[in-house]
Design a protein around this nucleic acid. Structure first.
Lengths: 357, 357
DNA sequence: CTGTTAGCGCGTTCAC
DNA sequence: GTGAACGCGCTAACAG
């Protein structure tokens, strides 16, 4: 049993509750001798303050909500790790809110701003819509977006367009011209308003810059996941003029492509190059070439910014900041020059089904 | 701003706070007409109850703590997924406590039982010591262990001995006799008091049953992790009579072995068989043969049991339950019969450095 | 059925 | 320097 309250301690120490409170909160104005008495009482009674009551009184909760599609995006977990490091060190509780469906996403955006349950909210890989952002802004709760966007919310992001460009350029540099792109749904059922869409832009820009026409048939999308990407890869590989390289919007999807290739007996990277995005831990084990983004760091930065926001209650306008993280190509073993046999076919295939950028 | 309280609603609806509270909590005894008035007021004021205040009043927190070595054990994350599913559906907040060091582990076990911050605690892959269990029992907080043990605490577990036996037997059935075992430290710096140790037992039992002498040099341990296992594998592979098969206490460690083999140009499974344990998601992508345990399900079961415990305040003695989950071998592409060349060497190597079981 | 009041445990004025 | 009283927002028990 632990229903020993501050009052019990006060009684035991022969002082008032106010004094006990001061001792607990390191308040200077307490005589050393009485402080000692109180501390003794605390020790013998094995007292510890009730956090809930403290919260109610203080109006703070010392806990922050972290919202993300954790289990369908391995990258979220790596970001979470960064968040956890910062939060636990700052003695904040981390309350996890996982999102897997559209419904859940909407519910959370409606519920989270309510009540004063959290001192701050960290939203990962989920971009709020205007009305949702309004709600957040309205209740004045500190919010930071990680890998997500909204013009009126602070955020930690990367340059997705540049990333898409970088990946595609790598393939072009290797000699590829039949380059496909697989991504999750751009119209974003998750209203992510997508990183994938911006990477797609980078992809098209790189293609255009190299005078490689954009082929609509080389672009495929589906819900995010290994299996979905695997299916899309099969479609791509069955094309009359299949791509010699595939760029995917995430490493998870790249794994799907790798699986499809394996099932078809297509050698990687000899016959097909694959490049992913994110550089999640597993990418290394699978020797996947990919675009590295600082996942752990994004969590750290996001959490730190949130803590800053919480500590300095800036005036309502509060300057919105967009913090950019660097990207870099990590070349491993899934990309190589296209097979000689494929290069010949290039010109043939180009005429049909071709859309200029 | 959202400092609209229950009192504001009462005033606006022209009723007392008690009535508003009843409406909120679905209490039956409220006339439909007044209920309507209150609901209107709630809607126009956009009111929502302050959870903290509610908690203080109720003496409940509607949140449960989940403690685990999340980021060093991918299996924890998969278990977490099951936990999250149950908890979010039951409307409980999930507060995450990550453990990476011995110090953090000890702190958590000391802090967590304090205060009435959580309605329940779920401890994953971390076994409390007797004094720690005492504390937990003393404060009467509902606790469930998942993949962890303590005689006086409810738990969801697997039969690790059987699992170790199963893995080893598979190797024996394939014709191996030079079978090594890699695990994390059995004396457990994390005081896990080990699944790894029990799997080790199963390993030795299977060996003994097949009349294969136990060779101490074939057993290696180090902190849990890919890199550590990779180093251990190198040691094993440099032995005069290297093993033809390696059983690891976790898939994470198996990956380390795979990497070591790759670095040495050893073909898997032709020249070396590898079998892991857990069947984490990545195991499938890497074609790893392993012992499958229901990770997601363990989280679901653990969370459900915890919720039961919370709902039915059983008398202090409360029957302790141990819930067992099934195991099964998942054969993929990292195990095969030993190479013919190795079979000859077997008898030679056996004489030296040999310890009978 | 419904308004009123007494806590829940703690932080924080205020006077002393 | 320290004790007493009030308030945080809500629920529950008690009158009416």
């Amino acid at each position: 049993m632990s229903p020993v309250t501050i009052r019990d301690v006060a009684k035991a120490a022969g002082v008032g509750v106010g004094t006990v409170s001061r001792v607990i909160n390191q308040h200077p104005s307490v005589r050393a001798s009485t402080r000692q008495k109180v501390e003794d009482a605390i020790a013998t009674l094995d007292y510890s303050p009730n956090p809930i009551a403290r919260q109610l009184s203080l109006g703070k909760t010392l806990s922050i909500a972290v919202v993300a599609p954790f289990f369908i995006r391995p990258s979220s977990v790596e970001r979470l790790q960064g968040v956890e490091t910062v939060l636990s060190e700052a003695n904040y509780d981390l309350v996890l809110f996982n999102v897997e469906t559209q419904a859940r996403r909407d519910t959370l955006f409606r519920i989270l701003p309510r009540g004063d349950s959290f001192d701050g909210i960290l939203i990962v890989t989920l971009s709020p819509q205007d009305v949702e952002a309004d709600l957040l802004l309205q209740v004045q709760v500190p919010v930071v977006l990680v890998d997500a966007h909204h013009p009126r919310l602070n955020r930690v992001v990367i340059d997705d367009v540049a990333g898409g460009h970088m990946a595609t350029q790598h393939l072009i540099d290797l000699g590829h011209s039949r380059i496909a792109y697989i991504s999750d749904i751009l119209e974003s059922p998750f209203r992510h308003e997508g990183a994938s869409a911006r990477r797609f832009q980078g992809y098209r820009q790189a293609l255009a810059a190299a005078s490689i026409p954009y082929r609509h048939e080389y672009y495929r999308q589906d819900r995010h996941g290994v299996l979905q990407a695997e299916r899309l890869a099969h479609q791509l590989l069955e094309l009359p003029a299949p791509p010699t390289a595939i760029f995917t919007a995430s490493d998870t999807q790249a794994i799907g492509v790798l699986r499809a290739a394996e099932q078809r007996g297509i050698a990687i990277p000899k016959q097909l190059s694959v490049i992913g995005f994110d550089d999640i831990e597993i990418a290394e084990y699978m020797h996947l070439t990919t675009i590295h983004q600082p996942l752990f760091t994004s969590g750290v930065e996001g959490a730190q910014r949130l803590l800053e926001l919480i500590r300095q209650p800036s005036v309502p306008p509060g300057r919105i900041e967009e913090f950019h993280l660097p990207l870099r190509l990590v070349q491993r073993q899934t990309t190589a020059p296209p097979p000689a046999s494929a290069i010949d076919i290039v010109d043939d295939g180009l005429d049909a089904d071709l859309i200029n950028y």
